[in-house]
């Protein structure tokens, strides 16, 4: 049953390479990237309970960590990925430290401030030579090897799928083992978690780092796919969109992050298609509809259909 399901999922994921025309394939590539970014946020907020309203900042750091070496130093895309992972990991870990002292809503606002600050930092004169200032940086997407016989858009979809798939796999491994349980334990009951020998400070800062790496990988992919980075692509709106995607898809759910990515990309387009004059209103209406119909996110709906009815045997009789 399980290998069959995996094969079917893989076929479904690869099908668009041939089934969709260029523009739609490009859109789907961006959705895959958003799904990866939402996954990153879900690790720290959904699984570990540290609210971040600023994950767009890590997305931006990842994007520039790929764009700068590709654009200015002619690096290959693949060579930038480990660099991006390290940079994002260090930045995420650094943000994790003040986060230790700031609980709940205060952390949410502090990370939000980070998201607001990042575009302006990228424009600043001191780093302009590297970031290209307001104009941003142009780069060329990696070319498909000749033997693959794929168009650039087809190839980039495959690349995004590969990187995102790998990140999803590693994250799923992490979350279902000792460390994933500790992340959730810390979220559910910090006092008991410490009594089990869990070091809150170390767990939380490392979780922040991993989360930033995953969202940063999405940023790296986006730089290569769009072939352009500029500060105004990474405003706080991006951070809020990722947060919305996480909630709509399912907080603390890996599968939910996939749906979240689809929501982040396609619902604004849908709203635009329905009403050109007031897409914001349509977007809001769709969002509220989702939250009403699916209070546990899309993942909650899937769970309702796939898990057997839960019975509670052995209720104490006295």
């Amino acid at each position: 049953m399980k290998p069959l399901l995996i094969a079917a999922g893989l076929a479904l994921a690869l099908l668009p390479i041939w089934a969709l025309e260029s523009f739609h394939l490009f859109q789907l590539t961006l959705a895959v990237i958003m799904a990866l970014a939402v996954l990153g946020l879900n690790i720290v907020t959904g699984y570990n309970g540290q609210i971040s309203l600023g994950h767009g900042a890590f997305f931006a750091v990842g994007a520039y960590a790929t764009a700068i070496p590709m654009s200015l130093l002619d690096w290959s895309f693949w060579a930038t990925l480990p660099v991006s992972a390290i940079v994002c990991g260090v930045v995420g870990w650094g943000v994790g430290f003040p986060a230790l002292r700031l609980g709940g809503l205060y952390l949410a606002l502090t990370t939000f401030a980070l998201a607001v600050a990042v575009p302006q930092i990228l424009k600043h004169k001191a780093v302009e030579a590297w970031t290209g200032g307001v104009q941003g940086l142009f780069l060329l997407k990696p070319e498909a090897p000749a033997w693959l016989a794929l168009s650039p858009d087809q190839y980039m979809y495959l690349v995004a799928l590969l990187v995102a798939g790998l990140c999803y796999l590693l994250t799923a491994n992490l979350l279902r083992g000792r460390i994933g349980r500790a992340m959730m334990a810390v979220r559910d009951n910090p006092t008991a978690a410490e009594a089990m020998g869990m070091d809150l400070a170390s767990l939380k800062t490392r979780t922040f780092a991993v989360s930033a790496i995953i969202t940063g990988m999405a940023g790296s992919l986006s730089a290569a796919v769009v072939e352009f980075v500029a500060p105004d692509s990474f405003t706080f709106i991006l951070s809020i969109s990722l947060f919305v995607g996480m909630v709509v898809g399912g907080v603390g759910s890996i599968l939910g992050s996939v749906f979240g990515g689809l929501f982040v990309l396609f619902v604004p387009n849908l709203a635009e298609a329905i009403s050109r004059s007031a897409p914001g209103v349509i977007y809001g209406a769709i969002l509220i509809l989702f939250l009403f119909i699916l209070p546990d996110g899309v993942a909650g709906l899937v769970r309702r259909f796939t898990t057997k009815k839960r019975i509670i045997p052995g209720r104490e009789t006295s």
Binding site: G177, R178, I179, R181, A182, M184, M196, G197, M198
Partner: peptide, 11 residues
């Protein structure tokens, strides 16, 4: 989760 302290494998 109670077995956390008995384990060592990290991230």
């Amino acid at each position: 989760a109670g077995a956390h302290s008995a384990g060592h494998a990290g991230f």
